[in-house]
């Protein structure tokens, strides 16, 4: 590549982290499988895995940060490309769930409705919890006893919490961009403040989403078990929420580092990677807002 510069491409020394992280991953996976099958030690095993993984990644990233002055532009570029392709893989992960939503809603439910012989009287509507699922109350709060018995469920009003959440996330993308510009202009304090605002908006989003889930479960009777509607609703929003958590965490670390004086106006890959991730999470939310809540 013509851009390959004269100095060395940084090849790190031998490192124990990858191997150790694999063991931690093994604990998480095995622990998870055991937990789901009722083994009492499952959660503990998982916990050990998570803690180990956390500690290891902390050290691993620590060493990357320490090495970073040695990285030349090519290494930097590798990191950038790596991050972008990683985000692409995340896009495909969400694509699977959006695809499932499309299929269930536009194909499976109508087919079931056509199958008079097996499901007499079932009609194709959306939202739907399937032929033997609970009835849908158009929206708002169904009567409490029906919810308790699991025969009725209500919908989240898209113009309430979800709309706030949309605004929160969109705003957070803006604040993040302002912070980035500030960093590039070497206005450190301003960058820190706007980044802190971004993280705060992210946390606020998560708080509202938690509230929404509580409402769904306790008031609306809308749960994971509410047929395909509940399944797609909770898995899509849930995985998104999980990604927001991760993104907010990344940005929080970046914030801490910024407060410690890391990053310069022209070299701040960690910031940018976090920002890309955040924008990706944002875009997914817009998709969710449209396809899950509104349509």
């Amino acid at each position: 590549m013509a851009s390959q510069s004269q100095d060395h491409y940084f090849v790190p020394d031998a490192s124990i982290y990858p191997f150790a992280c694999s063991i931690a991953l093994f604990f998480i996976a095995m622990g998870g499988a055991c937990y789901l099958n009722g083994f009492a030690f499952g959660p503990n095993l998982m916990m050990v895995g998570f803690l180990g993984m956390g500690a290891l990644l902390f050290k691993w990233f620590g060493s990357v940060i320490k090495e970073s002055p040695e990285y030349n532009m090519d290494v930097d570029k590798s990191f950038r490309m790596g991050m972008l392709w990683f985000i692409f893989s995340e896009v495909m992960f969400f694509a699977a769930f959006f695809g499932a939503l499309y299929y269930l809603r536009n194909l499976a439910i109508p087919w079931l409705a056509e199958t008079e012989l097996l499901w007499p009287g079932f009609e194709a509507t959306w939202p739907s919890s399937g032929p033997v699922g609970a009835d849908l109350v158009v929206s708002g709060h169904p009567d409490a006893t029906a919810v308790m018995e699991g025969t009725k469920y209500g919908l989240i009003d898209p113009l309430h919490l979800p709309l706030y959440n949309t605004l929160l996330l969109l705003t957070s993308s803006v604040t993040l961009t302002i912070s980035h510009h500030a960093l590039r202009a070497n206005k450190r304090t301003s960058a820190i403040i706007w980044l802190a605002a971004t993280v705060a908006l992210g946390v606020w989003f998560l708080y509202l989403q938690a509230e929404e889930y509580i409402e769904a479960y306790q008031v609306l009777g809308l749960t994971l078990g509410t047929g395909v509607y509940g399944s797609t609703f909770f898995l899509l929003t849930g995985f998104h929420g999980f990604h927001v958590t991760l993104g907010a965490f990344i940005l929080f670390i970046v914030l801490l580092r910024m407060m410690r004086g890391h990053f310069s106006a022209d070299k701040h890959f960690a910031f940018e990677a976090g920002a890309w991730y955040w924008h990706f999470v944002d875009v997914v939310w817009v998709g969710l807002f449209i396809f899950v809540y509104i349509l």
Binding site: L117, L118, P120, S129, G130, V132, G133, A134, G225, G227
Partner: peptide, 22 residues
């Protein structure tokens, strides 16, 4: 059973079908 045809897979909801008088 043509009408009953409850699907014996995983969901707890299925039991409702059985009792729904089909």
């Amino acid at each position: 059973e043509a009408t009953a045809a409850a699907v014996n897979t995983n969901a707890p909801v299925i039991e409702t079908a059985e009792s729904q008088g089909s």
